[in-house]
Computed example of a mutant assay.
Amino acid sequence: MRLDVSTQSRGPLFDGRAQALANRYVDHLERQLADEGRNILLDELDRVLRTQTPYYATRIKVEDGNKITDSRVVYGPWLAGIGSRNYPVTKFRGYDHWIVTRDKLNARKRGIGERLLRRYTGRM
């Protein structure tokens, strides 16, 4: 008995389209997570700051598509409680807005990633 087997390698997995879509998915996911984190951070600032001036909130941005930053505002570390002028130098221990933002974003990231992935898997 003789058995001949032949295969053809074609389609998105073999011509690079799936890899390109996977890379686009990762970029899109990073940007979406950063945007969500920025929104959470702004909500947290509303929660912790009694008297707000818009300067600090307007400096919170997403840079490089995946980093949330306060644009190195000079009193940013003091607000976060990690500055040299925080406790024990003064009574002010800082706010927890960055920590709470991290925790809330970590809790939401899986759902965000799964919803976004559904858009891409059909094309792979």
Results as ranks from 00 to 15, higher is better:
3 L>A: 14
3 L>K: 09
3 L>T: 00
3 L>C: 07
8 Q>M: 13
9 S>W: 15
9 S>Y: 15
11 G>I: 01
11 G>E: 09
11 G>C: 11
12 P>F: 10
12 P>N: 04
12 P>H: 10
12 P>E: 05
13 L>F: 12
14 F>S: 11
15 D>C: 08
21 L>F: 09
22 A>V: 04
23 N>C: 02
24 R>M: 12
25 Y>V: 02
28 H>D: 15
28 H>P: 00
30 E>A: 14
34 A>L: 09
34 A>E: 11
34 A>F: 09
34 A>P: 02
35 D>P: 00
35 D>E: 12
36 E>R: 10
38 R>S: 05
42 L>K: 08
43 D>M: 14
43 D>P: 00
44 E>Q: 08
45 L>G: 00
46 D>Q: 05
46 D>A: 10
47 R>Y: 15
53 T>V: 02
53 T>L: 13
53 T>H: 08
54 P>H: 02
55 Y>M: 01
56 Y>C: 00
59 R>Y: 10
59 R>N: 15
61 K>T: 01
63 E>Y: 07
67 K>L: 12
68 I>Y: 13
69 T>L: 13
72 R>G: 03
73 V>K: 00
73 V>C: 05
77 P>T: 01
82 I>T: 07
85 R>E: 02
85 R>L: 06
86 N>Y: 05
87 Y>D: 09
87 Y>E: 06
92 F>G: 00
94 G>R: 09
95 Y>F: 15
98 W>E: 15
98 W>D: 11
99 I>W: 14
99 I>A: 15
103 D>L: 03
103 D>G: 01
103 D>N: 13
106 N>V: 02
111 G>T: 01
112 I>P: 00
112 I>W: 06
112 I>E: 07
114 E>R: 04
117 L>G: 01
119 R>M: 12
119 R>P: 00
120 Y>M: 05
120 Y>A: 10
121 T>R: 03
124 M>G: 05
